[in-house]
Amino acid sequence: MSASMETDMTPMLSVLSVDDHPIYSQGLALALNAMKDSLVRSQHGPLRFEYADSLQAASARLQRQPGFNLLLLDMVLPDGNGHELLAHLQRHQPDLPVVILSANDSPSDVTMAISAGANGFISKSAPLAEVDQALCDVLSNKIVTPSNYSRATGVEATVQLDEAIPSLTPRQIEVLGLLARGLPNKRIASILQCQEDTVKSHLKALFSKLEAHNRTECVRRGFQLGLLGHNDS
């Protein structure tokens, strides 16, 4: 098989960028595709970008082409707020990773986006290498927040919740922080110097206390409740 045929058969990472500023979204696509030693390309394949400049256009594109691997979403669009699309995706395409790309990365905006279902939040002012790393992390099932999103500011900006913050033990909080880094049970056990069965017991307790059904939902609840900040991701 020739090299060109192998290239043609390489799986593409299909990305939908929803942004009403084509200079930014198309510039990011060009930069990522031209970036030497790109982590997201090397680990997840060549990038194919498509574009939508409004919520309506994005919804129509997602209906026609449900096979996107990643959605990049600006929160401020001509016909509404990105939270509307996030809510729709949580109901209809919950497995599609969504990364918010925003000029405003205040802690309250980050907390609201992650709580609403976003898998990551990246400032538009972030360096290309940071964006590349963040996209790679999201595609590896991690939740990503900006570097200025700290535990303290996150707690202060946490969305008002009806339920009380559950009581976690110090070790459960440690496990939650390692879970937010996308680490497997074996690696968590190694870091904490305990048995894998012990880690599984902590995870079972975390899932119960945070009312989560899987690892990603558990981490999302941690962010939502202000239990996690950027130092944990």
Score class of each variant (00 low, 15 high):
residue 22 P to K: 05
residue 43 Q to N: 14
residue 60 A to C: 00
residue 104 N to V: 04
residue 117 G to A: 11
residue 131 V to E: 00
residue 29 A to G: 15
residue 129 A to N: 11
residue 144 V to F: 08
residue 126 A to E: 10
residue 86 L to P: 14
residue 55 L to T: 06
residue 85 L to A: 10
residue 87 A to S: 13
residue 61 R to Q: 12
residue 76 V to F: 04
residue 137 D to F: 11
residue 140 S to H: 15
residue 43 Q to M: 09
residue 109 D to T: 04
residue 69 N to D: 15
residue 137 D to M: 14
residue 21 H to S: 07
residue 99 V to F: 06
residue 30 L to S: 08
residue 128 L to Q: 03
residue 113 A to C: 15
residue 118 A to F: 14
residue 85 L to F: 09
residue 24 Y to R: 05
residue 109 D to K: 10
residue 58 A to G: 05
residue 32 L to C: 09
residue 22 P to E: 08
residue 68 F to V: 02
residue 120 G to H: 12
residue 51 Y to M: 01
residue 69 N to A: 14
residue 107 P to F: 02
residue 57 A to N: 11
residue 116 A to E: 12
residue 124 K to V: 02
residue 107 P to W: 02
residue 51 Y to K: 02
residue 112 M to G: 00
residue 125 S to I: 10
residue 141 N to R: 15
residue 55 L to G: 06
residue 29 A to H: 05
residue 74 D to W: 02
residue 30 L to M: 07
residue 124 K to M: 08
residue 34 A to D: 12
residue 79 D to K: 04
residue 92 H to I: 05
residue 68 F to I: 01
residue 47 L to Y: 03
residue 28 L to I: 14
residue 25 S to I: 03
residue 64 R to K: 09
residue 137 D to Y: 12
residue 24 Y to D: 04
residue 123 S to I: 03
residue 60 A to R: 07
residue 131 V to I: 15
residue 70 L to N: 05
residue 142 K to W: 14
residue 143 I to P: 09
residue 111 T to L: 13
residue 37 D to V: 00
residue 55 L to N: 07
residue 62 L to D: 06
residue 74 D to P: 01
residue 108 S to Q: 13
residue 30 L to V: 05
residue 141 N to S: 15
residue 104 N to E: 04
residue 72 L to W: 07
residue 101 L to T: 03
residue 38 S to W: 10
residue 21 H to G: 00
residue 123 S to A: 14
residue 89 L to D: 07
residue 48 R to S: 09
residue 51 Y to N: 01
residue 63 Q to P: 00
residue 86 L to M: 15
residue 42 S to P: 01
residue 65 Q to N: 12
residue 27 G to P: 00
residue 48 R to G: 00
residue 57 A to E: 10
residue 57 A to K: 12
residue 71 L to E: 05
